[in-house]
Write a protein that binds this DNA or RNA. Sequence first.
DNA 1: TCAAAGTTCTACGTCACGTAGAAAAATTGC
DNA 2: GCAATTTTTCTACGTGACGTAGAACTTTGA
Lengths: 128, 128
Amino acid sequence: MASLGELERAVMDLLWAGHEAATANTLRDRLATTTEAKGDAAGHEGKELAVTTVLTVLSRLEKKGLVERERGMRPHRYQAVSSREDHTAELMHEVLGSAPDREAVLARFIGSVTDSEAETLRKLLGHI
Amino acid sequence: MASLGELERAVMDLLWAGHEAATANTLRDRLATTTEAKGDAAGHEGKELAVTTVLTVLSRLEKKGLVERERGMRPHRYQAVSSREDHTAELMHEVLGSAPDREAVLARFIGSVTDSEAETLRKLLGHI
DNA sequence: TCAAAGTTCTACGTCACGTAGAAAAATTGC
DNA sequence: GCAATTTTTCTACGTGACGTAGAACTTTGA
């Protein structure tokens, strides 16, 4: 119960990037700019979504527990509940837990980790 | 592009469990038995699905690259392409790769790993 | 009090997935 | 060799998630 759609993901990325709370309007604008880069080479002007679209997505993300909003201020402010790193790490644990033999999975996992990542892991495991 | 539905997951679990190739019929039977346990306390007799249902799911899993079938034999034999551990580890890598700062994610990840898992990791990463 | 800005409700199209019948193809038992 | 049976493929429908947004309701600012 944690998979995100394309737009939901894009919104989370924005919230995670500049991690202060943002309004739906701000997000809508940033989405247009962000999408711009992804569009086909030629200046395919990032299309602005309707604010309601962004609001719907934010509501769904809130329901999923990924986003929380301050209802005090009038243009509600939205922000990610946890950092991208925390969320991603949590996801990794979920995946890991989906297999009976966790240690066997870890073995395979380590097998295909980059050198620098292995180094990072060694350090982290050192002082625990 | 790797999330599984409930039934798809159940089928993969069976293929991963007894990891010889199996026919759609065999799988349908095992699904009934397996489901039995999950049903409400009272002997809620695992309901047998139509074989076509199982076949459809197997086709979809094949298309997703998780299952392969031997078309030689007539009742086709199906088997998982990779072990559950390999598949799970691969998923973990996918998740890890979905964040820009992989090392930061690893830090959080390690932070909430069990002791025995940490031990396993140390061994796998070699001394030091 | 009104217009403007913001929020909630409702809704539609699409796609994945559970589910399976109908039709086509292959096997098997006589 | 042919009918009965098994297996596979095609087609399809219901449901729920997600992208998308208009309509309607609420709050704010002048």
